[in-house]
């Protein structure tokens, strides 16, 4: 904003009234109530008793997603109608930036847990350092290595032999996701996924260059390739999970290695799914002729998100798979 006087000030569009917030609230609250009920039925409930939890959850989720769809559609319509001043557009830019920052912090929590477990907890449980005094009392015989192929529980002879309260049984994996587990480099799925996702970040950038030049054909082509790479990534990830559960014995129950592996890659995969959906929507919008060389924020925001999930993957590849 280059310091306009009040006469040349472009009006900031403040929408008057909107039902979106209330509708989104109804959908959100119903879906979390349903989700919590499903989990409680699963863990604490009577398996013979049928409940309505799933219907509440699915209805809420559908209501929520439908509201979000209507909400975004309205925002897009306002933009096409020329109601958004340059200043308002900057608000959307700031909103997206800080949203991505909050996502970074979410991953930070899980990476922090991983680092804490690997550098401090593991050695302590094995009797090293200042935290190691309990090893002889609780986890005698436990030796630490990463990936953790034997949980402390297994080291003392299983859940029944464990000297503290039993809060589940943790059976470690037979095979880890390490590079050393495969006989040829091309059998290692995470390497392929790294190549796929890095390439997709590049193709996304090429698409961006295309729209900046006003070359819509180029834009649509490269954006389409990016979405396709996202789908392939998710497919490979899904296959890797299948392998983990079916052949590696690596599950959510495999102690802290399984916990951190599935939570980090799982949340990342979910974010890839979100980013891919966002980009696919931008592709459809482009085919409908929404974008011009100087107005394509919907795509730009989605592409930032895509580069963000790409960067998270680089850290995942480094700290979950390689190191």
């Amino acid at each position: 904003m280059s310091n306009p006087t009040s006469t040349e000030y472009e009006k900031y569009y403040v929408p008057e009234k909107s039902k979106m917030a209330i509708m989104a609230t109804i959908g959100l609250i119903l879906s979390i109530y349903g989700a919590a009920s499903i989990m409680n039925d699963m863990t604490f409930g009577d398996p013979n008793e049928t409940t309505s939890s799933w219907s509440v959850f699915l209805f809420g989720l559908f209501f929520f997603l439908a509201t979000l769809f209507a909400w975004f559609r309205q925002a897009i319509k306002e933009n096409i109608a020329g109601m958004n001043s340059a200043q308002l557009k900057k608000s959307y830019v700031l909103g997206m930036f800080w949203f991505i920052f909050s996502e970074v912090m979410f991953f930070f929590a899980f990476f922090g847990a991983l680092f804490y477990v690997r550098t401090l907890v593991g050695p302590w449980l094995a009797g090293e350092g200042e935290g190691g005094r309990m090893n002889g009392i609780l986890w005698e015989g436990f030796e630490y290595s990463w990936p953790m192929m034997q949980t402390p529980q297994e080291a003392v002879g299983g859940a029944a032999a464990q000297p503290i309260a039993n809060n589940g049984s943790f059976t470690s994996a037979e095979t880890s996701m390490d590079f050393s587990e495969v006989s040829h480099w091309y059998q290692w799925l995470p390497l392929w996924n790294t190549i796929i996702l890095l390439t997709s970040s590049f193709t996304c950038h090429v698409a961006h260059m295309g729209i900046l030049d006003g070359n819509k054909k180029k834009f649509n082509l490269w954006l389409g390739i990016t979405v396709a790479l996202g789908v392939i990534f998710l497919f490979v990830q899904f296959y890797e999970y299948y392998e983990a559960y079916a052949h590696f014995g690596l599950t959510l129950n495999s102690g802290i290695y399984g916990s951190t592996f599935f939570m980090l890659t799982g949340f990342h995969g979910f974010h890839v799914f979100m980013g891919m959906t966002m980009l696919a929507i931008q592709l459809m919008r482009s085919l409908k002729g929404h974008f011009t060389a100087d107005d394509h924020f919907g795509f730009e925001a989605s592409s930032w998100y895509w580069h963000f999930v790409d960067v998270v993957w680089v850290f995942l590849f480094l700290f979950v798979y390689i190191l």
Partner: peptide, 26 residues
């Protein structure tokens, strides 16, 4: 978001068998 991460780990430990906060699983 870090708080969201903390309660998500709790949720997974309670319902899905992870061991973030359980020494028995590491």
């Amino acid at each position: 978001p870090v708080l969201a991460g903390a309660v998500t780990m709790m949720l997974m430990d309670i319902h899905f068998g992870t061991s973030f906060f359980s020494a028995a699983g590491g």
